[in-house]
């Protein structure tokens, strides 16, 4: 099978995010960068499919020079090769367009993306990529089976679970629960250093980035007013006071 997994490098979930004073973006100093957790599920599923069916896994990532670390991580997990698109940042549509341009020549049987990246939280790129490649997409997948040239995917929705069948090739966006991503082994890390990674810029892909959506300003979240600690020794008295405050002051119960 010819498999593609798209990955993005994002700040670790424990990172404190500070907005630049002029609101143009975030302060990147001191941030630990990791593979987007949802993309890890995509990479793992890609590797499992390859191990079962044969073939190869290509990792595609768009981002600045440091994104290469994330590609190497995926190669160390077991992927065969990578494509690094050296566009620092773009809106969702242009990101998908860049990925589509890089993937087109590969003609994959299946493409994995994370259901969203935990930095921008948009959850759009996988679906737009599918549209641009003319492929069906199943988002938020927690279980996947490939049989008879079709993909059967389980997807949780509000209050239910769907079993969806998709023709192939298709795009699958991975949700937590799909699998347990493996760690890169030391031999894997050594081997990854020698695996081929194609570095391509916008011109090499034949695209120009024309933003459709722009972030005009970033702001820190609104500060919360300091709260009230309900003091005392008696749990029942404190609970009664809380219930009263929720009912009469906050009016939320």
């Amino acid at each position: 099978m010819n498999i593609v997994a798209c990955v993005k490098q994002v700040p670790d979930t424990e990172a404190l995010i500070k907005v630049k004073a002029d609101g143009s973006g975030i302060e990147e100093g001191g941030i630990k960068w990791v593979m987007n957790p949802y993309d890890e599920y995509g990479v793992e599923e890609a590797l499992k499919l390859k191990e079962k069916n044969g073939g190869e896994v290509t990792i595609v990532s768009m981002g600045p020079a440091r994104a290469m670390e994330t590609i190497r991580t995926a190669l160390a997990m077991g992927a065969e090769k990578g494509i690094h698109i050296t566009i620092d940042k773009a809106d969702e549509y242009n990101t998908a367009a860049a990925l589509a341009a890089a993937i087109k020549g590969i003609n994959p049987d299946i493409i994995f993306c994370g259901q969203r990246a935990i930095d921008d939280d948009s959850g759009q790129v996988g679906s737009i990529l599918a549209e641009l490649l003319g492929l069906p997409v199943v988002t938020l997948v927690t279980k996947l089976e490939i049989a008879d040239g079709k993909a059967k995917a389980v997807k949780p929705i509000e209050g239910a679970q769907l079993l969806i069948e998709s023709q192939m090739p298709c795009v699958i966006t991975a949700q937590k629960g799909l699998n347990e991503p493996r760690y890169a082994s030391l031999p894997g890390i050594m081997k990854a250093k020698k695996k081929p990674v194609d570095v391509k810029d916008a011109a090499a892909l034949g695209i120009t980035v024309q933003p459709k959506a722009k972030i005009v300003k970033m702001t820190p979240p609104p500060e919360r007013a300091p709260g009230k600690i309900i003091g005392g020794d008696d749990p029942a008295a404190k609970a009664a006071e809380l219930a009263k405050l929720l009912r009469e002051e906050a009016k939320v119960i």
């Binding site: 969702e92 939280d121 759009q124 679906s127 737009i128 549209e131 929705i157 959506a213």
Partner: peptide
Amino acid sequence: ASVQGKDLSAALGGKLATGMASD
């Protein structure tokens, strides 16, 4: 920005070649 709406809106953004702000 429900499960269905997120899925549909992202696909539509691709089909209509337009930008979108999520959630």
